[in-house]
Amino acid sequence: MIPLEIGNLAVSHPPDWGLALGVSTARFAASTFTDTLDARTHVRKFTYATLSEWDVTGRQGRDEILAVAWELAANAIQHALRTSTRHTRGRAWLGLVRKDGAVVCAVTDPSPSLPQRQPPKLLDETGRGLLLVTRLSTAWGWSLSPAGTKTVWARVPTPPW
Rank of each mutant, 00 (worst) to 15 (best):
M1P: 12
I2H: 08
P3E: 12
A10E: 09
S12T: 15
P15W: 07
D16Q: 12
D16H: 15
W17E: 06
W17L: 15
G18K: 09
G18L: 08
L19S: 13
L19P: 01
A20P: 10
A20V: 13
G22P: 09
S24T: 15
S24M: 11
A26D: 15
A29F: 05
A29I: 10
A30V: 09
S31P: 05
F33T: 03
F33R: 04
D35H: 02
D35F: 03
T36V: 05
L37M: 04
D38L: 09
H42T: 09
V43D: 02
V43F: 01
K45S: 09
T47V: 11
T47H: 07
Y48Q: 14
A49H: 14
A49F: 14
T50W: 07
L51E: 04
E53D: 15
E53M: 12
V56L: 13
T57P: 05
G58P: 05
R59M: 07
R59S: 09
Q60V: 05
Q60S: 14
G61H: 05
L66R: 07
A67L: 08
A67M: 10
W70I: 05
L72M: 07
L72E: 03
L72W: 04
A73P: 10
A74M: 12
I77P: 00
Q78V: 11
H79C: 08
A80N: 03
T88P: 01
G90W: 05
R91H: 06
R91K: 13
R91E: 14
A92W: 03
W93T: 08
W93G: 00
W93L: 04
W93R: 03
L94W: 05
G95W: 00
L96C: 11
R98N: 06
R98Y: 06
D100A: 12
A106S: 08
V107A: 06
T108Y: 05
D109C: 10
D109S: 11
P110R: 07
P112K: 05
P112N: 08
Q116W: 06
R117F: 04
Q118Y: 11
P119C: 09
L123N: 12
L123S: 13
L123F: 11
L131S: 08
L132F: 02
L132G: 02
T134V: 00
L136A: 06
A139L: 10
G141Y: 09
G141T: 09
W142V: 05
S145D: 02
S145H: 04
G148P: 04
K150H: 06
T151P: 01
V152A: 01
W153A: 01
A154M: 02
V156Y: 02
P157F: 02
P157G: 02
T158E: 01
P159A: 04
P159G: 01
P159N: 00
P160F: 00
W161V: 07
